[in-house]
Every structure is written in C-alpha cells, then in structure tokens.
Amino acid sequence: MEGKVKTRRSLLNWLLTGSLGTLILATIYPIIRFIYPPDKPEAVRNTIVAAKVGELEKNSGKIFKFGTKPGILVYTSGGDYRAFSAVCTHLQCTVQYEPTRGDIWCACHNGRFDLTGRNISGPPPSPLEAYDVAIRGEEIIVSRRTG
C-alpha cells in the first residue's frame, strides 16, 4: 500500500518535471529563433544587389526583383549602368531593354523610354522612376532615391 503511493508519487513528479521541462524548451526555442537575425536583415529595403559585375553584356538589360516590384538594370553600350523601376507608367506592365534601338520598351502598348527613364513615345504619361547604381566590389547595388 505504502509502496504503491510512493510509486504513484514518483511517477507524478517525473511526469511533472518532464512536461515542465518540455514547456520550457518549447518557450525558449522560439525565442532563440526570434533573436537570431533573419536572412533579410532589414525591414525597409531601399537597396538591393541587382546583378554581379560581368553578368551583363554591354547593350543589354536585366529585370531584377526589388521588393514586390520589378526593376530594370541596363548596361549601356557606352559602358555605364543605369537602373529604373521596370513598372511602366501607363498600365504597370513590366518594361524591357531593347538592344536594337537602345531604349527601354514596354511590350504591352509600345511605350518607350530613353536611358534616363524619360518617356519618349507611346502612351506612357510620365518617366520611369530612376534608381541610383553603385558598384561595390563584384556587386552592382541599386538603391531607391530617398527624400
């Protein structure tokens, strides 16, 4: 009788310690994961690595993901990098670089922009938003102009 009570008590204690320990682990685990910085270290990203140096040939362009919207990086035949928002100002299609004419072209309604982002023909009413381009080591960094 006495022994039975004792086993029941130790079983209870064992269960209590076990579940309490599990609970503590279940609390600490998310906290540690929370503290550890995520892959994208910043909330407001005004800067992104658009491409690597050498990735683009002269007189070509590349669409890159900038947040939830596309951006376009152009390596001009003159040898400099230009970056713009790739969202056409007419109806928000994604624009592309057209090497034969050396301008930025929107396939949806044939809108054209020059390499400063200015709308030069077709329906787009306003220029593409221009971004700043900087080269840091092997990376081509595109950043939104602030202020």
Partner: peptide
Amino acid sequence: YNLTEATDRLIE
C-alpha cells in the same frame, strides 16, 4: 512579385 507576370498577361 511573380503575380506581376500574370497581370502583365492580362493587360496584354
């Protein structure tokens, strides 16, 4: 971001 490809097709 990928959804913009579909909306592009809609406009086209």
